[in-house]
Nucleic acid binder design. Structure first.
Lengths: 205, 205
DNA sequence: ACGTAAATATACCGATCTGTATCGTTTAGC
DNA sequence: GCTAAACGATACAGATCGGTATATTTACGT
């Protein structure tokens, strides 16, 4: 492994283990063993474990939001359908065999003090995701974009929480349907894709 | 302190600390110090820390569901309004200064293996709460009680998750409004209380 | 009131935790 | 190719972890 890749490899390894076992339960020794790296090397890149956690969360924050953006934008150009596509992206995340809940919620759950840097990093991620929902709602020319973004955010969080304990993707599908029911009278265009509308027509002709 | 109270006192102390700091971050030494009890005493009542966690979760499960039942049943006898009263109960929980998120979600978040007894205890609590929602939906003579119970459950979980990071009760109020919007055409009676309807009439006569 | 079971305090165990120190080896940039 | 920085391996420090052992005192049931 090239030296320039070590830092990123450490972050990826740490993120995988944090996702699998949580933050307190994942020791430095396990991280370096899984990464195949000496302990000295880890502490040359990150001063403390907390710094490693913060760097990992920052990396994952940017990565996750970029993935969602890419998924949503290449799925449809219709601004309203893009709002709904966030649920499809979420469903894909939840269906991943490695899904163990939202790592930012876990981070906040293990670092509950509002002043804890880890908690603040988790909060910041949530704010940025919410801002993206607002951006989508604004583009969709919805009357109250902030309220709709809050609602989508709440449905997302509920779906992830229920999916985390039930180990099922069905809560995400249900939250999507709830979003459709909630918003289908508030926006200018239908909230189901043309393909789905065709399916529905074919099902009951 | 009487001997018969020690076990319960240990469970209460442990629950308080688990809620404040999480499970891994709360050591045995802190629990016994806060409880004012010798370590030997704790280990006479609970074989391991995991046993203590499981006993604490079981106690809190019964306590929390009994509190919700009591709150809901004494607030209104109308079965439909009782569904909505679960949100009011939730709002009271979230407004508590000690609120740090759902301790069962935290437990599942720190014990992610599906076979972990702690994870299973958290899952069991969620199933029982969902069953109560179904019970309420059934009493309200709703067409699809299970689907509505799932929806309420999802809104609850979303509200708690968002409230946990934003440190606000507003997400709970929003989830309640979303529930009203979702169900007001599905049930036989209005979903706002007569007092709220009077307020609305007074506001715009 | 007495005897037993459970409480206490304290010391201790081995394991594990985060983090450092040492030192020999490898790599990257000039 | 030289040099300086980074890496690997290992040992270790000091704290804390969950859990035990022991010896003494306290409280409860009969």
């Amino acid at each position: 492994m090239r030296r320039s890749e070590i830092r990123g490899h450490l972050l990826d390894t740490a993120l995988r283990l944090f996702n699998l076992h949580g933050y307190h339960a994942t020791g430095i020794d396990l991280i370096i063993a899984e990464a195949g790296v000496a302990k000295t090397t880890l502490y040359r890149h990150f001063e403390t474990k907390e710094d490693l956690i913060l760097a990992a969360l920052e990396r994952r924050d940017e990565e996750a939001r970029a993935e969602m953006r890419t998924y949503v934008e290449q799925r449809t150009s219709d601004p309203v359908e893009r709002l709904m596509a966030t649920f499809d992206f979420l469903e894909a995340c939840v269906r991943d065999s490695q899904f163990r809940g939202c790592i930012f919620m876990s981070a906040a759950g293990e670092h509950k003090e509002a002043a804890d840097p880890v908690f603040r990093a988790a909060l910041m991620h949530k704010r940025l995701v919410l801002a993206y929902f607002e951006e989508l709602a604004h583009a969709a020319r919805i009357a109250e974009p902030k309220r709709i973004a809050d609602a989508i955010n709440l449905l997302h969080e509920g779906a992830v929480a229920v999916a985390q304990v039930t180990r099922s993707a069905e809560p995400v599908r249900q939250s999507r349907r709830m979003a459709v029911t909630l918003f289908d009278r508030e926006v200018r265009a239908p909230l189901v894709s043309s393909a789905q509308r065709a399916d529905a027509q074919a099902a009951r002709p």
